[in-house]
Amino acid sequence: MNTSAESPLSGLESVGWAELHRAYGPAVDVPGQLKALLSADEEERRQAHHRLRGNVYHQGTRWQVSCHVVPFLTALVDDPATPDRAAVLDLLRIIALGDRDDTHLPFALTPAENVTGTAVAAVVAWLYGDDDRDEPEEAEAVAASWDRDAYLAAAVLSDRFAAWTDDPDPLVAAGAAELLAWFPATGLTVSRLLEIPATQEIPRASANLTLGYLAPAEPAIDHRLTSLLTTESLAVQLTAAVALALRLGDRLPDAALQILAEAPDHPDEITAFPIPWDRSLLGFAALALYRIGLSP
Score class of each variant (00 low, 15 high):
residue 92 L to N: 02
residue 92 L to P: 01
residue 92 L to G: 05
residue 95 I to N: 01
residue 95 I to P: 01
residue 96 A to I: 09
residue 96 A to R: 01
residue 98 G to D: 10
residue 99 D to G: 15
residue 99 D to F: 08
residue 100 R to E: 09
residue 101 D to W: 08
residue 102 D to G: 02
residue 102 D to R: 09
residue 102 D to C: 06
residue 103 T to I: 12
residue 104 H to P: 00
residue 104 H to T: 13
residue 105 L to D: 10
residue 106 P to R: 04
residue 111 P to V: 00
residue 111 P to I: 05
residue 112 A to N: 12
residue 113 E to C: 09
residue 114 N to D: 15
residue 114 N to V: 13
residue 115 V to C: 10
residue 116 T to Y: 04
residue 116 T to W: 08
residue 116 T to P: 11
residue 116 T to D: 07
residue 116 T to R: 09
residue 117 G to Y: 01
residue 117 G to S: 13
residue 118 T to C: 02
residue 121 A to H: 08
residue 122 A to K: 13
residue 123 V to S: 00
residue 124 V to H: 01
residue 124 V to L: 14
residue 124 V to E: 10
residue 125 A to Y: 01
residue 126 W to G: 10
residue 129 G to L: 07
residue 131 D to F: 12
residue 131 D to T: 13
residue 131 D to M: 10
residue 132 D to T: 12
residue 132 D to S: 15
residue 135 E to G: 07
residue 136 P to E: 04
residue 137 E to K: 15
residue 138 E to K: 07
residue 138 E to L: 03
residue 140 E to V: 15
residue 141 A to L: 04
residue 143 A to P: 00
residue 143 A to W: 12
residue 143 A to G: 12
residue 143 A to T: 04
residue 145 S to G: 00
residue 145 S to K: 15
residue 145 S to N: 02
residue 145 S to H: 08
residue 146 W to M: 03
residue 147 D to Q: 14
residue 148 R to K: 11
residue 149 D to K: 08
residue 149 D to A: 15
residue 149 D to G: 12
residue 150 A to S: 15
residue 150 A to W: 05
residue 151 Y to R: 07
residue 153 A to Y: 05
residue 154 A to W: 00
residue 157 L to P: 00
residue 158 S to M: 13
residue 159 D to M: 07
residue 160 R to F: 06
residue 161 F to N: 00
residue 163 A to T: 13
residue 164 W to H: 09
residue 164 W to T: 02
residue 164 W to K: 04
residue 164 W to D: 06
residue 165 T to A: 07
residue 166 D to K: 09
residue 167 D to Q: 11
residue 168 P to G: 09
residue 170 P to Y: 09
residue 170 P to V: 12
residue 171 L to H: 14
residue 171 L to C: 06
residue 171 L to I: 02
residue 171 L to E: 14
residue 173 A to W: 01
residue 175 G to Y: 04
residue 176 A to C: 09
residue 177 A to R: 04
residue 177 A to S: 15
residue 177 A to H: 08
residue 177 A to D: 05
residue 178 E to Y: 10
residue 180 L to A: 08
residue 180 L to W: 05
residue 180 L to E: 01
residue 183 F to M: 02
residue 184 P to N: 06
residue 184 P to R: 04
residue 185 A to S: 13
residue 185 A to C: 06
residue 186 T to H: 06
residue 186 T to C: 09
residue 188 L to H: 14
residue 189 T to P: 03
residue 191 S to W: 06
residue 193 L to V: 12
residue 193 L to F: 11
residue 194 L to C: 12
residue 196 I to C: 04
residue 197 P to R: 12
residue 197 P to S: 13
residue 198 A to N: 07
residue 200 Q to I: 03
residue 200 Q to H: 14
residue 201 E to C: 05
residue 202 I to E: 11
residue 204 R to N: 12
residue 205 A to V: 04
residue 205 A to E: 03
residue 205 A to N: 04
residue 205 A to F: 08
residue 206 S to N: 05
residue 206 S to Q: 08
residue 206 S to I: 06
